[in-house]
Nucleic acid binder design. Structure first.
Lengths: 364, 364
DNA sequence: CCGGGCAAGTAATTCGTATAACTTGCCCAT
DNA sequence: ATGGGCAAGTTATACGAATTACTTGCCCGG
């Protein structure tokens, strides 16, 4: 036999769970060359090998518990089966999971893993993570923000396909994905108008100074709906909270004890709405009979569990996450256009017709 | 001594758009061998090279935007600078973030990235993810559960250093990390006893059938505290909810409208406590004046925002996450011991002395 | 008996890095 | 003068998989 090749010294024991069998191990055990193993296992070359050989190689690979070494493959192919997901989420952000869920699901459908890193806003960690991601030749990077805003993206990001998620890139270099805030605010307000309300307050989640698209957009939508309905924009009815429970509580209290309280409140997020619920309860006001409330976010851990269930707008985070990965995969060219996602109304039980359409004064 | 050679000509513009410079590119540009580049950049061989050469290599590397190819390095070194984190979290789990935050922080301190995958309980995805992680030669894998339970770990996990987090491995092959449920239940109950309560109910989050350590342990602690105080264990005061708001609501309602209502309720998690709050509000009962409440979890988005703030036990998720990675890094041998973490009491305002004629104390 | 054609497989190379082993030039002590 | 010792490098190879180009044996037509 021509192949008097010396058997490898120290051949790995069969099925040794050690470091893992390589193609060479499989080749040796099956009595073929490494190339054959590669070709057979990847089913690459049509019917280039005999049924007999294919079978043998496959069996041996299975017996040895062969698993491909991803690094060797990437080294040769140039690009890894991983997508980076970089977020500034603080751990408590309840929707972080939703966005990641969508992104991950889509990545997985494409056979890719999503490598998630939460920086908590730490810039050094952010840069370092990006560097690492680039070292690993990630197929792309999703740069996600905890809340909708305009942000500055680190320059390194330009070296890889990237998309900005739940935010807009100030430099306009990257495609962005964001919720359609204005339409959301409009829809929320319309819902209340349609129910018959005419005196509708808004408790916002921040100043309307241009840096917080959620606050700006939702307010714009609110005003648009109001003006379409021929109503004046009463500044006394637009209050600024901090986007949390106490902001909702304090402002709702002020609103309802003021001299001309509204019959409905649009809270620019669900946490604010929760605070408003607590204030209204404290005043002995019932929702929705005395006051109607609409929220924003449809936070799963909150909105359905309030009593009554909160009518609110859903931030379509799962879809946004999906779409971000989709964009990466599509290899679309790098234009900085923003894709806006509609926020559907989720109807529950916090909206009803006002009791006294015309005049309301005392609390009762 | 200025070196004769002028600054390298033809340096690619900053942010080379191409695939990225390799060590060979740097070597060529700096006029040295690839080995020199490797040794200099890794600062490996003491002071093996002249200051002059070092400088030149470093400069050129920087100019070319050299970044190490992690796959080449791993291929050679055998193990990657990544740790896998596999969780069955549904996206809404509010503490998922906490656990990951801790794990990630610790990994980062060791210069490792944490690769997080949420399977949502999908077994196929779980196995596939693990396979991928193994393909990438992860330094270790954290297998995390959304809630404390006894689970069956997939066999492949045995091929890599692994630790089970927030759960216990039935097979006893892996080290586990879990909260100290019983002590938590004991502490919660003691807090109420110390405040003077004698009729203390518990709304549990599941049956006490052995499969849910949180339900079992917290209940055991409750009973232990009661019996230490010489109190009978009245079965009418132990109710089983579903661990959510409506479980708390319904059971609290039943409890307080029953024929001998308690003066205090220990809710086995914060969501249940929230439901209880709502039921008590509906009955016109005030917390803590009429009824005291203690929760469990210290959920950030919930406990501090309830009115009054909820006194509860904190699940030390950040520390648990840290510890999981710590264990992986320590390379401890694979014994299946479980490490238990204490849950500290977080004092807020939902506990006061009972109004009972027996125990007269002024509310401070 | 020549060579084309095909089936079945193998050798050799590539990816980028780390490192063990070797080279070269020079100084210095014997 | 001879070689030891050191500084400052370089050469060569391995890691694991994919792939291109080649080999080998055999059949078959003319």
């Amino acid at each position: 036999m021509p192949k008097a090749g010396a058997p490898k010294a120290g051949a790995p024991k069969a099925g040794a769970p050690k470091g893992g069998a390589t193609m060479n191990d499989v080749a040796a055990a099956a009595g073929v060359s490494q190339a054959t193993v590669s070709l057979v296992l990847n089913d690459a070359a049509g019917t280039r090998f005999s049924e007999e050989t294919r079978r043998r190689v496959q069996d041996v690979a299975h017996q040895l518990g062969y698993r491909t070494n991803a690094h060797a493959k990437v080294l040769r192919d140039g690009v890894a089966g991983m997508i980076g997901f970089l977020g500034d989420f603080v751990a408590t952000a309840p929707f972080a999971g939703k966005i990641i869920e969508g992104a991950q699901a889509r990545a997985w459908e494409a056979g890719l893993l999503l490598l998630t890193v939460s920086t908590g806003g730490d810039k050094a960690l952010e840069i370092a993570s990006l560097e690492t991601m680039l070292s690993y030749k990630m197929a792309g990077v999703v740069y996600a923000s905890m809340y909708h805003r305009v942000l500055d993206v680190p320059d390194v990001l330009a070296e890889v396909p990237a998309v900005v998620l739940n935010a807009r890139d100030r430099s306009g270099r990257f495609p962005s994905i964001a919720p359609q805030e204005e339409l959301g605010g409009y829809t929320a307000t319309r819902r209340l108008l349609d129910a018959g309300h005419r005196r509708i307050a808004m408790i916002n989640i921040g100043a309307v100074d241009g840096e917080l698209p959620a606050a700006v957009g939702r307010f714009d939508g609110y005003r648009k709906a109001l003006s379409e309905a021929g109503l004046d924009d009463d500044p006394a009815l637009h209050l600024i909270g901090k986007g949390n429970e106490s902001g909702g509580f304090d402002n709702a209290l002020a609103l309802m004890t003021g001299h001309a309280p509204p019959t409905a409140i649009f809270c620019a997020n669900d946490r604010t709405a929760w605070g408003a619920y607590q204030a209204l309860a404290q005043l002995g006001l019932s929702i929705p009979y005395d006051v109607s409330v609409v929220g924003f976010d449809n936070q799963e851990t909150l909105a359905p569990h309030l009593r009554p269930g909160l009518t609110t707008l859903e931030l379509p985070f799962v879809e946004m996450g999906r779409r971000a990965v989709e964009l990466l995969l599509s290899g679309a060219e790098r234009n900085g256009t923003t894709e806006f996602f509609e926020c559907p109304l989720v109807e529950r039980h916090s909206v009803a017709a006002p009791q006294n359409p015309n005049q309301r004064t005392g609390t009762a």
